[in-house]
Each structure stands twice: as C-alpha cells, then as structure tokens.
Amino acid sequence: MSAAIGMEVLKTKGRKIWLVVAVMMAVQLLWAGWAISNKDANDLAQGWLFFLYQFPMLNCIIMPVIAAVVASRLSDVEHKGQTFKLLETIIPAQRIFAAKFIWGSIYMLGAALGQLAIMIGMGFVLHFGGPVPWSALAGYLFFTLVVSLTIYIFQQGVSMLVANQMVPMTLGLVGGFIGLFSMFFPQGLQKLILWSYYGVLMQVGMNWDEATRATDFYWTAIDWSGLGLILVFFVLIYGIGRILFVRKEV
C-alpha cells in the first residue's frame, strides 16, 4: 500500500496541484481580509464567531472546486496514458482506488489546515475579542474534513470512471453552487445534498436586525444526526465508487 501511495506522489510531479490549493487559499485569505476590513471594534469582538460563520459558507464553493481539481489531476494522467490496464495487472484495483484517495485526502487536509491558519492568524493580528475558541476551531477542522473528503471521494469516483474530465469538473462546480444556495432549502432537502453539509455542520448562527442593520452571531448546537448522515454518505460513495472501478473493464 505504501508503495502505491508513494507512486501517486511521484505521478503528481510537476502537476502543480499544491499550487491550485495555494491559489484557493489566497482567494480565501483575500476574501476574509476584505470581509473583516469594514468591521468596527464592536464587530471584531465577535470575530471568531464571524469567521466560523463565514468560512463554512465560502467553503460551499471553495472546497468542491479544490476537490474536483485534485481528483481530476490525479486521474487524468491515467486516462491519457491508458495506464489502468497495466496497473491492474500489477496491483489490485481496490488498492489503486485507496492509494488515490489517501493521497488526494492530503490535499484536502492541507486546504483545511490552511483555512484554520488564516482564521487563527487573522484573529491574533486583529485581536479578536475573547479567548481563542480552540474546541470550536478543532470542530471546524473536523467537520470541514468530513464534508470535504466525502465530496472528494465523489469526485474521485467520477474522475476515475469517466475519461472525459469535463464531466467531474462540471458536476463539482454545479454541486458547489447548489451547496451555496442550499441555505435557502428546507432542512430535509438540505441533508440530501452533499455540498450543503458545510452549512449543516456549522457551529455558529446569525441574527440580523433589520431595524439597526446589526448582525449578531451566536453558538449553535452541533447537528449530530447531520454528521451521522454525511459519514453514511461517505461510506456509501466510497463503496459504490470502488465496486464500479473494480468491475470496470479496461
């Protein structure tokens, strides 16, 4: 298995996948800087809550894009060089699938850690009020990873099964936009859409006072059933993707 993962790393040589992650993190940093720049001291007191509300929203579109690009970059070389028919005479197809998932996960982890660094860094620089909410930040990292890896495994499945990478890329983008608008969907429907889970697993809520035009953020209870459901989705999608890939004749 470690050999298979190591070879996934070698295959990414010169593919600039980390650059894609870095660019997306830069977008996120710029956006966070812009969003916080028109806040007064009063708002900054709620800075942590503000970020823990806004970052998951932005993730609805940022993370699916990263997942789609990473999955596609890890698979397109196999389709282009028709390598599956040789690889599958050397190692089991399941192992190819698993190695790609593990190496792809590293990029998703990198992106999630990058976001955490942005939040904490800005929090310290701008002196957000109150103690650093370490457990909520850890929760953010965990929930972001769970949702992102589920979206990633969906992307990987499609990228490995379909040679034309326009298909997974389009699905990823459409999914991201649906996720963005899913805030306005009823809860039941929301929970059927992978891309809306950044919102489902958010730890912060927002009140908007129309009269004073002031926003007020507050901690919410974690939606454990939502977490359970997305974990089920992950296992299902991984299982189905793997079976289809193993069964696929090359």
């Binding site: 050999a3 298979a4 070698l10 295959k11 040589k13 070389v77 060089g81 390598t83 028919k85 050397i90």
Partner: peptide
C-alpha cells in the same frame, strides 16, 4: 501505457516499485 509528464526512467520506476 505511460505517464507522458514523467520521464522514461520515472515511468519504469513506478512499475518496478509496484512490482517489487
């Protein structure tokens, strides 16, 4: 079967490593 973005030696290294 080949990886176009890698060298010939790197291509063989992938299959040699996987074959052990």
């Amino acid at each position: 079967s080949y990886y176009g973005h890698l060298t010939g030696e790197e291509n063989l290294r992938i299959f040699q490593t996987l074959r052990g």
